[in-house]
Design a protein around this nucleic acid. Structure first.
Lengths: 175, 175
DNA sequence: GGCTAATAGTTCGCTAGTGAACTATCAGGC
DNA sequence: GCCTGATAGTTCACTAGCGAACTATTAGCC
């Protein structure tokens, strides 16, 4: 029996079993959140296996891609933290690692000397251009079970959910 | 500007920017996987904030719940690894932590002395019964943006996706 | 019965990520 | 100009999780 299938079955059985003893449990919500985390976790792990040969994990990769896709190839650690859902501590480590490999460079902003400016290097751009295409096939395969309509629906629901939980997850943020 | 909304926008803009330079990129798939990971990550973090007062993280919690919902309140570490998507190493640590708090007990199986049997204790059952209900409201609120039909659709698509990626993620498993 | 291979857990050393404390710089009121 | 508070990053000590190596036990084969 394969792993994820076993997990899916265990989730349904476990939720069913607990619900019979605890009728107040919101069955539908528990199933959704468990399936969501299981699927995302599996996809993340699969993706990181693909990234490993390049010496990156998903956080490193996201950070590098944010710089790659930015207008002028630069960003501050603070902004990257915001966009990549990372804490400053970890961004420091990521930037150190990427800088050590000369994929990005570090400098100080002139107008505000507290800020650090990270910039993707030409070598960093070449690296991304080379490593990105081989990642596509397995990604396409992962979602091959969806029709175009299903893909659209799934995207719409995910986006709706993401924006809905935003204020719940981060109640102090400016709305 | 709140955090997740910024991330969602950054994902769409980033993908758009890269796609213009790299036409082979499967835009739809990249958006789906990024939204999925972002949403699941946010829900996980929110959930762990709720679990923290009880001194548990999500893995500890899942492990305890697997025992709680099992027929006789027992399971072997190996089975829990399979069901909770954990590695044996980590399960040892989790079992140590739960056993230290007397929420579970450890003993050896008689028919196969290699196997360890973990069993939820009466105190463990009381603990679960007490901590579980307070977790429900925020979980319900997280999915309050979905109609009943949307919830069903989302569950169906998640399940379909989970089962589809199963053999891709774990190619060595027995089908 | 005794050797070999496989299986269940554990230990160890490492990577990834976090909160709290710290440094450096900037902005605003006086 | 100069104190006060806020902001941007960094460092440090810690937790969570992983792969590889190890131990103990079992199953199969001769």
């Amino acid at each position: 029996m394969s792993r994820i299938k076993t997990c899916v079955e265990a989730i349904y059985e476990g939720v069913d079993s607990v619900a019979s003893r605890m009728p107040a449990m919101p069955v539908s919500e528990v199933l959704l959140v468990r399936l969501l985390m299981l699927t995302a976790g599996a996809l993340l792990r699969e993706f990181e296996v693909k990234l490993k040969p390049y010496g990156l994990n998903d956080s490193d990769f996201r950070t590098l891609m944010m710089l790659y896709s930015s207008e002028d190839g630069t960003a501050t650690p603070g902004r990257l933290c915001l966009l990549a859902e990372q804490k400053p501590t970890n961004m420091t480590r990521i930037a150190n690692a990427l800088a050590k490999r000369d994929l990005i460079s570090r400098s100080h902003a002139t107008h505000d000397r507290r800020q650090v400016v990270l910039r993707i290097t030409p070598a960093g751009r070449r690296f991304v251009a080379k490593m990105l295409p081989p990642l596509f096939p397995s990604l396409v395969e992962s979602f091959a079970c969806f029709s175009a309509a299903e893909r659209k629906t799934f995207e719409r629901l995910l986006k709706k959910l993401a924006l809905h939980i935003d204020p719940l997850v981060d109640p102090d943020a400016t709305p």
